[in-house]
Design a binder for these strands. Structure first.
Lengths: 223, 223
DNA sequence: CCGTACACCGTACGACGTACGCTGTACGTA
DNA sequence: TACGTACAGCGTACGTCGTACGGTGTACGG
């Protein structure tokens, strides 16, 4: 038949980067379950099997996608106090994970960290050590902060709404009716208070984050 | 042909409970990817389509599995101080999620909480409110604690080892060689310290948990 | 002008979720 | 006793998935 010099639809020629980038776009738009090699190839104007010249398997593709996600996280800046630095990178992490919700579910199954992941960890550890945390304490702080950020992103991803207004709408129409007040009195109280006060995930996030940062502060050893 | 009175292999007759329980066993043993309707049916001595008399779809099956997981978590006891109660249920949650690692990855995609999940949330909120946390503060505490627990479980699930000894073995043989000391000086320092000190996920967990609980203490309003 | 390498593709296989329609049995009613 | 209905479970089939394998045309070094 006729293979052209290079594929023509949407760009000239494939590459691992282009494949991974398009895969992320697809996953962002349709979720991980909507990402198949065939659909991905289609979006790139290529045949399914062509992708295997750039990734060894779908697993490897997913690993690569995860590492790009880590690459999107802003590294901790070095010219401020440790709390600001950690807050900044935590906020950035949350934003990135909210932008790519599929990434969180993938973290569980992928066991070996990619280069961007390692760089990120190195930068955070460096910041904590330089701030005066002893080695093991820096590890503790790392686990604590990461747990909070990932866990928050996980919970946020499973919320059926994105904004405060959406929540107000849904809360009254969908949630409350499902909660018999006699069986769930406290949940009803909370839900009502939240609808009244308005709800912003970003504020919720910084509350816990600042609390953790403050609690870590006295565990440093130098000034 | 011949349909027997009831299916005969491994028990007499199916039921949603039996289907869900066997699905969890299968997922525990082989991971979520190893759980297919056909394999599950096989394990139950039934045909694939028979399962659809008890669950409307695989999605519903997964939802049911998640809710059973929440049901396995010990509710917060009511006869102790709030910190002990919260610590206990957090520890139980971690144990349960470590026993069913697939559950964590599933949380991301399932948006409406099952009854066991609701009961769990109600119990936790009740405990916090009774301990003197104002309504919105109880919500904050809830998010904070859950984020930590889920995030920790998520990180733990993606570790390639389960015990401290395994870590010591792997750390020296697999991890360190991958980390060029000039590029990742701090990670090397941490890894070395961890191998030397020994590493126990359970201890790591309680460190962060106790830190969070202590930091929440002054936010109560009554004694 | 030829040979080799490369980029890409078509086909095929086994496994997946599940729609649809069929069985044989149990049991209430006459 | 005979029959009707309901139900538990199954067989087959369709479209999709990941991917092994073996092409095929073009580019380029000799």
């Amino acid at each position: 038949m006729a293979a052209k010099k290079h594929s023509e639809a949407s760009g000239t020629g494939l590459s691992k980067q282009r494949v991974v980038a398009e895969a992320m776009r697809l996953a962002d738009r349709e979720g991980v379950d909507g990402l198949s090699m065939r659909r991905l190839a289609g979006a790139l104007g290529a045949g399914a099997m062509s992708l295997y010249h750039y990734v060894a398997s779908k697993e490897e593709l997913l690993d690569a996608m995860i590492d790009v996600v880590f690459g999107e996280i802003e590294l901790a800046p070095v010219d401020t106090d440790w709390q600001s630095a950690m807050r900044q990178r935590a906020v950035s992490t949350r934003q990135v994970l909210a932008r790519h919700p599929w990434a969180i579910g993938l973290l569980e199954s992928r066991t070996s960290p990619g280069p961007a992941n390692l760089r990120h960890h190195e930068a955070v550890t460096a910041c904590l050590r330089r701030a005066g945390f002893p080695v093991l304490m820096a590890t503790h702080a790392n686990w604590l902060l990461d747990s909070y950020v990932y866990g928050f992103a996980l919970q946020e991803a499973s919320l059926p709404f994105d904004t405060a207004e959406e929540f107000a709408d849904m809360g009254e129409e969908v949630y409350l009716p499902q909660l018999p007040p006699d069986e769930f009195p406290y949940l009803n109280e909370s839900a009502a208070a939240l609808v009244a006060a308005g709800y912003d995930p970003a504020e919720e996030f910084t509350f816990g984050l600042d609390l953790i940062l403050a609690a870590l502060e006295p565990l440093r050893v130098s000034a």
